[in-house]
Design a protein around this nucleic acid. Structure first.
Length: 282
DNA sequence: TTCCAGGTCCCTA
DNA sequence: TAGGGACATGGA
């Protein structure tokens, strides 16, 4: 099936600008410029999608036959992942004003890939806290293998990202012993329970502040999840942010907390994107 | 061994 | 309101 897009964008860049493409159950074939992953539909049917871009269309191939309704659901999930409903023009206008990121506008970059469900991204953000990226990759891999459903498509084996129910039922000691998430087990279970008890509150929110109610979500995770729902007005202050900003703007000398956090203020509603591409532009 | 990583919680003063 | 130890895990 095909999904037509409103604003042109760089597909490869949309997939790879953010590290999410490295986390299971996603898979990026750089050579074929194709993105693969399993999706779980409302009916619990599992479908593997292969996504690529041709002209102004996202091409979505699937490994099984789908009804019209199921195809619509796949389209919705893919549209969410690639932020097809977001308008980037205001950001590009700012990029023209502040020439340091003018290349984003020229190459239609700025889109950051997200998971098909907000719950998956909540868990993955928790996986990035107080650890190394390699461990984040491992936690995602183990979570899907241990608690997801095995499926295959396009010559590869995949495991779905587990549901909140599945994670809740697994319990704390299982998450520590088999998923190696350490003390994060409590946070992950809290996220799963909150989503199960009040799905509307957490999944349909227009305010990223509700995410702070989840244990383990502090300022960094809050702003990371705000980015996921398309709100870029806060920066994710973590060790990488600090290192980058201190080196780039303070000659290696640590400034005050306030100075550190306000470096990208001129970008207004787009601070996160400005930081992200300033940090990753090399 | 010890330290610490793309943090946050919780207790203390 | 700010400061600092604790927290699971695994690599250096």
């Amino acid at each position: 099936m095909q999904i037509s897009i409103q604003e042109p964008f760089d597909f490869k860049d949309a997939v790879t600008s953010h590290g999410w493409w490295m986390l299971a159950p996603s898979y990026w074939d750089a050579e074929k410029e194709s993105f693969y992953r399993p999706l779980v539909l409302e009916t619990n049917k599992i479908v593997v999608v292969k996504i690529s871009m041709v002209a102004m269309n996202l091409c979505v191939d699937v490994n099984i036959d789908l009804t019209e309704l199921e195809q619509e659901e796949v389209r919705n999930q893919v549209s969410w992942m690639f932020r097809l409903n977001e308008v980037f023009q205001p950001f590009y206008t700012l990029c023209e004003t502040y020439q340091e990121l003018a290349f984003l506008q020229e190459h239609k970059r700025g889109r950051l890939l997200r998971s098909p469900s907000l719950f998956e991204d909540m868990i993955k953000v928790l996986f990035t806290t107080n650890t190394r990226w390699q461990q984040t990759i491992q936690m995602s891999e183990l979570l899907t293998i241990q608690l997801g459903d095995r499926t295959s498509g396009f010559g590869r084996t995949f495991y779905t990202f587990p549901s909140p129910e599945r994670i809740k039922d697994a319990g704390e000691s299982f998450l520590q012993k088999y998923v190696r998430v350490g003390y994060r087990s409590r946070y992950i279970l809290d996220a799963a329970e909150k989503i199960l008890n009040q799905p509307e509150r957490y999944l349909n929110t227009s305010s990223a502040d509700v995410f702070k109610e989840i244990k383990g979500v502090g300022p960094y995770a809050r702003n990371s999840l705000a980015m996921i729902i398309g709100q870029y007005d806060g920066v994710p202050v973590d060790s990488e942010y600090k290192k980058h900003v201190i080196q780039t703007y303070f000659q290696g000398v640590a400034p005050s907390k306030k100075e550190l956090e306000t470096v990208y203020d001129k970008w207004g509603e787009y601070k996160y994107l400005a930081y992200w591409f300033d940090y990753n532009q090399k």
